[in-house]
Design a protein around this nucleic acid. Structure first.
Lengths: 154, 154
DNA sequence: GTACAAATCACCCGAAAGTATGACCGGTTT
DNA sequence: AAACCGGTCATACTTTCGGGTGATTTGTAC
């Protein structure tokens, strides 16, 4: 029953919309019959209404048109990169510190890392400091080099 | 839900039957009314027509969603590093600048690079500045990343 | 011989990176 | 409850980097 509801929700909605339209139509009919004129306006309203319905229906029912564009991307070792979790736990490097290391390796500045991780610059500095300690290095470039050697980053 | 279906199947069936009856009745009613209601038929036709128009419009006007598929092209496993001299000359990177880049990638500071190359710190700075310009980067970490991508360094 | 690129060095300044230290909070462990 | 860890943030300070500018030397190509 639930599946039915999901699968045919659109159809149900369409039905309901049609019903609503008919009611509206009826109402409009009465209005204009009483006024005894303006059939064109009536027809026009109907046309606009049902055009809108058609648009809505089409948007609702059709699968989005897709155009597939292939783009070549140069990839070297990132494809077969397998993170060395053993070393990671051995050195006691936390998730956050690894994230910082990854962004460092991508050439991000501390400020950029802070923005990307939604933390303050000082926090990034703390993380990187701890990271350097754990990796036993003193510069980000060394950290990157060692990180790659230890397979902590691609 | 399944239990519900089993328990109330009869009730459901009855309800559905009633509904079917009502629909049938309505349909019969319409059959006989339709002759007297040419205007309604006309309106109905209009409605259907413009619904069609709406559908057509929507299909015609919606932008196709573009999906970019990135095809990965393996470049090099970095083990058997082959320097990309073409890119090197294209970018006009000199021998000395490349040496600086290599040492940078090994994690050396400018001072360490200066010591290793037996030149002054200022010279290293000049080299690295020119290197950054040619690589179109603004930080040594970016230079390293780009250098590796362009196969200027292992 | 001169024009040119590469390499060398210097000085200044501001920005970024890194060090040291302390603090707070929310979980988890003991 | 207390200890601990990971994550967060802060201040203060030092060092390193990077940009800008200018200068000299040297080898090479025209």
């Amino acid at each position: 029953m639930k599946l039915f509801l999901i699968r045919y929700r659109t159809i149900l909605l369409t039905g309901l919309s049609l019903a609503g339209m008919l009611v509206l139509l009826r109402w409009l009919e009465l209005r204009f019959l009483i006024l005894d004129h303006a059939l064109e306006v009536y027809i026009g309203a109907i046309a606009i209404l049902f055009t809108g319905l058609g648009v809505w229906l089409a948007l609702k029912l059709t699968k989005p048109k897709t155009v597939i564009v292939e783009r070549q991307v140069l990839v070297s070792p990132a494809v077969d990169f397998q993170l060395n979790e053993t070393t990671l736990t051995e050195l006691g490097i936390s998730k956050r510190e690894l994230e910082v290391l990854e962004l460092m390796a991508q050439g991000c500045s501390n400020q950029e890392i802070a923005n990307r991780l939604f933390v303050s610059l000082n926090t990034v500095k703390t993380h990187s400091s701890r990271l350097f300690e754990k990796l036993d290095v003193s510069r980000r470039t060394q950290a990157i080099e060692k990180g790659k050697r230890l397979l902590l980053i691609p």
